[in-house]
Amino acid sequence: MGETARVLVVDDDFDFVESLKMMLENQSYEVITAYDGVEGLKKAKEESPDLIILDVMMPNKDGYAVCHELKADPKYNAIPILLLTAVVSNIPTTKYTQRMGMEIEADDYVDKPVTPSELAKRAEALLQ
């Protein structure tokens, strides 16, 4: 990839956004931020980022809804989406998180909190 990839981080928790931003910037990505679903959707459309990292539980519009709208729109459905799931899933964890993520067509999912190396790995894979 020649130029710097641009990543949109959408989460209502300021501290989360901040730490995700630091992790991504450490990987030399350019980071755009939004603090709820509506703002996230707006920025996704305006900025056309290369990757969206999207929290599930947010006020106004939750992550599922944002994901669904973007994936239903042919103009934006090519943007990969990484869902941040804080929903405590059933046991065993992976099975249900996976099902939930797949249903709404997200490209990948990761449980909060996420470690820098995990995030780097997932982001890199989605930006390929």
Binding site: F16, S19, L20, M22, M23, M57, V88, K112, P116
Partner: peptide
């Protein structure tokens, strides 16, 4: 409980990761 406890605690944990990795 999930939302009110889990969110701040995971935020703290994620911040700790960032500091621990020397990114701050």
């Amino acid at each position: 409980v999930s939302h009110e406890l889990r969110a701040p605690v995971s935020a703290v944990q994620q911040q700790l990761s960032v500091i621990q990795e020397g990114m701050a």
